[in-house]
């Protein structure tokens, strides 16, 4: 179990992390979300003992990261944002060094290295110099290093960056598999990945905790209204007339799109009016060409929660291209 209590980190006058408190339960996969500069990497660096907090404490499986660093660090596997690999080493040499650094007994090193190499499918590159590997493979070597020492907790800072789509799926599956036996905390800009892989989501905003819950609970808590999108071949008036009479419709927006009539229906949350809508449209001789439920996605929740953050970034730090960077990253991610 990881306990973060009143964590604060100042860089000069700027508070990167501001009085952040949360608990991470065992055997759960946590997704760390936040706009660029929200304090995700700083928090992860403090949790792994790379940085010291200005204030507050981090307890890793009962050990204070500052008071008992060796015990605490033994239970953590960390993959930083930039994989910490040595270009002049082969994959095997590097993993051997990482195993020795993690004080794994010599008789167990080979077995653990082989297991990590297998898990990350690095077998074909084990004897190659890391200098000659692609970014994706370096990322996997960094990930393999994090698995050494059988840590109880894995902290992964953007683990799928630089991987191709096939590798992303493989790594997601691996994280899901690891999540059964480990506590995993991962940060990512790919929101679909977080909602797919993570059991719980932590959203940071300006170094503070904006939300911490399961993606479903977050959606339910924030979703003010339900919604339905319908496409039909009837005229605008006929569709409006049919839908206006359906019980539960709170708001209706109708427009023409490519010869079809589209309707966005707003309802009370949790109310399912699909059958009533079908019946009403059929009765008005309007055939339904398509219908889908509009649900609030993690992307909507993220944007809603971090909106000010993004605006502030765009307004106050245009020279860093933060907003641009976010949209570029989002594009890359897609």
């Amino acid at each position: 179990m990881i306990e973060v209590r009143h964590l604060t980190k100042y860089y000069g006058e700027h508070a990167a992390v501001d009085d952040l408190s949360f608990e991470v339960e065992d055997g759960t996969i946590y997704g760390f979300l936040g706009a660029n500069g929200a304090g995700k990497t700083t928090t992860m660096n403090i949790m792994t003992g790379y940085l010291a907090p200005t204030d507050g404490e981090v307890m890793i499986n009962g050990h204070d990261i500052l008071e008992e660093p060796a015990e605490a660090k033994k239970t953590i596997g960390y993959l930083p944002e930039i994989p910490p690999v040595y270009p002049d080493m082969t994959v095997y040499e590097y993993l051997g060094f990482a195993a020795a650094l993690k004080k794994i007994p010599p008789r167990m090193r080979e077995e653990q290295i082989d297991r990590a190499v297998m898990a990350l499918e690095l077998g074909g590159t084990a004897d190659r110099l890391i200098r000659n590997l692609s970014k994706g493979f370096r990322q996997r070597v960094g990930f393999a290093q994090a698995l050494l020492g059988e840590p109880e907790t894995l902290i992964l800072d953007e683990p799928t960056v630089g991987l191709d789509p096939k590798q992303i799926i493989e790594i997601r599956d691996l994280i899901r598999e690891l999540g059964k036996t480990h506590t995993v905390i991962l940060s990512s800009h790919i929101l679909s990945e977080v909602s797919e892989v993570c059991d719980r989501v932590l959203i940071l905003k300006n170094g503070r905790l904006a939300a911490c819950d399961t993606p479903a609970n977050l959606a339910a808590a924030r979703s003010g209204k339900g919604g339905l999108h319908v496409r039909s071949d009837g005229s605008e008036e006929a569709v409006r007339g049919a839908l206006a009479g359906v019980a539960g419709v709170e708001d209706l927006r109708i427009w023409q799109d490519g010869g079809e009539t589209c309707a966005d229906i707003t309802t009370a949350p949790g109310l399912d009016i699909r059958r009533a809508v079908s019946r009403a449209l059929f009765g008005a001789d309007c055939m339904i060409l398509g219908m889908r439920e509009e649900k609030e996605t993690l992307e909507d929740i993220f944007l809603e929660l971090t909106e000010d953050d993004l605006q502030e970034d765009a307004e106050t730090e245009p020279e860093d291209g933060t907003a641009e960077e976010i949209s570029r990253k989002e594009e890359e991610d897609r």
Binding site: T48, A70, K73, V85
Partner: peptide, 14 residues
């Protein structure tokens, strides 16, 4: 410069 100090400083080796 290579950020490999993150590996060293987050390991149990003091």
């Amino acid at each position: 410069r290579n950020r490999t100090d993150q590996l060293l400083l987050t390991s149990p080796t003091g």
